[in-house]
């Protein structure tokens, strides 16, 4: 993968920031902060922002980890044991279209407004991409692989661990990437609705106090955080799936 420095992209961002600043100077109102004011607010509030995004990342991380630990084995099991999968899948299809945010009230009733409620909602919403991709990936694996497993006289659990998991990994990781993005998104929204602390709460508070520059600074922090997490996941993916990319590379000539 060739990584070129994206000059037009960067230039466009700078131009946008300049236009924004220009309009802000023209409008000259505290309700329309310019780019510079937002950066000032960002550094003025940097410790608070760092602490709040820390809470958010922690919740998103725990919720995501919970979903991964429970749903990955479950998905492989459902993909491998057909009868079980057929039984459970309609239920998954039944609850999946529910927007994850609709789970916030349920979580509130059962867990209150503490950490547990937010982590539950994050785990719930991160579960589906992992679960569905795991099921699909195991089912879609090359039929030869099952034959090999049988020839090697592997037990069912061994088959799942040594054959299904690696074979399904590329697609599962696609699901995991989606789940990571969703975790962060839902963590922020859950904090906005069940406010105690975290960056979502910070945003809600900035609105109540009419601190628009701070609100925009908070958004900037979330965007940068999401970008960083995304790159981190990509880096891990490239490492874990090196064998897979190497094989793809042999077929494609790009």
């Amino acid at each position: 993968m060739k990584k070129r420095f994206n000059l037009p992209g960067l230039a466009f961002l700078v131009v946008l920031a300049l236009i924004w600043q220009g309009i802000a100077i023209l409008v000259d109102s505290p309700n329309f902060p310019g780019f510079v004011q937002v950066i000032v607010a960002l550094f003025h509030d940097d410790t608070t922002l760092a602490i709040e995004i820390g809470y958010t990342l922690e919740r998103a991380g725990i919720g995501f980890a919970l979903a991964l630990v429970v749903m990955l084995p479950f998905g492989i099991l459902l993909g491998r044991v057909r009868a079980l999968g057929d039984l459970v899948e309609p239920v998954i299809e039944f609850v999946r279209p529910l927007p994850p945010i609709a789970m916030v009230p349920v979580a509130m009733i059962f867990f209150g407004t503490g950490d547990a409620a937010k982590i539950f909602v994050v785990a719930w919403s991160a579960s589906f991409p992992i679960l569905i991709n795991a099921i699909e990936a195991v089912r879609g694996a090359h039929p030869m692989l099952s034959t090999v497993a049988r020839a090697l006289r592997l037990s069912r659990v061994e088959t799942m661990w040594h054959i299904d998991l690696p074979a399904a990994l590329p697609q599962i990781i696609a699901g995991i990437r989606l789940a990571v993005a969703i975790s962060l998104l839902i963590a922020v929204v859950a904090e906005m609705l069940l406010s105690t602390n975290g960056i979502g709460m910070y945003l809600a508070r900035a609105q109540e106090r009419f601190e628009i520059a701070n609100g925009l600074a908070g958004l900037l922090v979330i965007a940068l955080g999401a970008l960083a997490v995304n790159y981190g996941v990509l880096a891990i993916e490239r490492k874990v799936l090196r064998w897979h990319h190497a094989r793809i590379g042999m077929h494609a000539k790009a």
Binding site: A11, L13, V189, M192, G200, A223
Partner: peptide, 25 residues
């Protein structure tokens, strides 16, 4: 396309509901 690339990457990472408070203004 290249101009939009970093902007899209950045905006895509933002949870849309997080924009609600400021959008109300």
């Amino acid at each position: 396309r290249r101009m939009l690339e970093p902007l899209v990457e950045m905006l895509r990472g933002l949870p849309p509901p997080a924009l609600v408070p400021l959008s109300i203004f």
